[in-house]
């Protein structure tokens, strides 16, 4: 049975229909990546799944309708890392990650030993132990992004939503972050729904890609089905080639040919 199910999700922003009736179901432990050009509705769709955006339609996780749950119960099922999070510069990184435990701490209470254990473990998994006592303002872009990921992982939800999780990372840290997500997915059956601009990475790490254009789904399937020259160059209005290297679809931009 599918873990997360979305039925006929539509979002209207002002007069503009940002998403038109999108339905999908995601299995437990599946990694789905939504791709598409700027303004195609990727982030709006993630916001709707995270209940940060008013939408029409129904989203269920484990059979429970998210709109009928309290904010706290929703936050125990779905965690979310936005593309551009607000970072309190004078907060310690350790405290920042610890805030991820919020949905598991009673409303007016404070964290317990278990919460500190969970956060300590996640920090060591992401090689962040050294950063715990530094302020967020003193971290590099890559360290910040890993702290944000750590905070969402500390929430210990079955579903995690990631909006451009690797945009600020260099090649090595991109791989490190994505490899870690891949490990956690195997260990805890974590279900990941992400958006990505790097189509090659998206194809390599995800089980399934969905190509959005103007708020609708243009293609849905594995990398071989979706990363095709006709589909990608059409929706992105880009000149590309797709080369297969060791079974992975690699997207290579082509320069403009002289006329």
């Amino acid at each position: 049975m599918a873990l997360l199910e979305a039925k006929n999700i539509s979002v209207t922003l002002g007069e503009h229909r940002a998403l038109g009736s999108i339905s999908l179901s995601v299995q437990s432990g599946e990694w789905l990546t939504i791709i598409g050009p700027n303004g195609s509705g990727k982030s709006t769709f993630l916001n709707a799944l995270a209940s940060l955006q008013n939408y029409e339609g129904l989203v269920t996780v484990g059979g429970k309708s998210l709109s009928e749950l309290t904010a706290r119960n929703r936050a125990q099922l779905v965690s979310y890392v936005p593309q551009d999070p607000i970072v309190p510069l004078d907060m310690l990184a350790g405290d920042y990650v610890l805030l991820g435990r919020t949905p598991h701490i009673s409303a007016l209470g404070v964290e317990g030993k278990d919460d500190l254990n969970i956060v300590g473990e996640i920090l060591s998994r992401l090689d962040l132990e050294e950063l715990g006592s530094r302020s967020m303002g003193s971290l590099s872009g890559g360290e910040l992004q890993r702290c944000q990921l750590a905070r969402a992982l500390a929430q210990m939800t079955p579903v995690i939503l990631l909006d451009e999780p690797t945009a600020a990372l260099d090649l090595g840290h991109q791989q490190q972050a994505l490899d870690l997500l891949e490990e956690l997915r195997r260990e805890r059956q974590l279900t990941i729904i992400s958006t990505m601009h790097d189509l090659t990475l998206a194809g390599q790490y995800s089980d399934r890609l969905m190509l959005f254009d103007h708020g609708t789904v243009v293609a849905d399937g594995n990398a071989e089905d979706v990363i095709k020259v006709e589909l990608i160059s059409g929706t992105y209005s880009a000149r590309i080639r797709v080369i297969e290297v060791d079974g992975a679809q690699v997207v290579v931009p082509r320069t403009k040919e002289p006329e």
Partner: peptide, 18 residues
Amino acid sequence: RILDVMRLGDAEAASLGI
């Protein structure tokens, strides 16, 4: 403690159940 969560901004506070 909730006021510390609010330091993350409204969207993230909401995604943490506040």
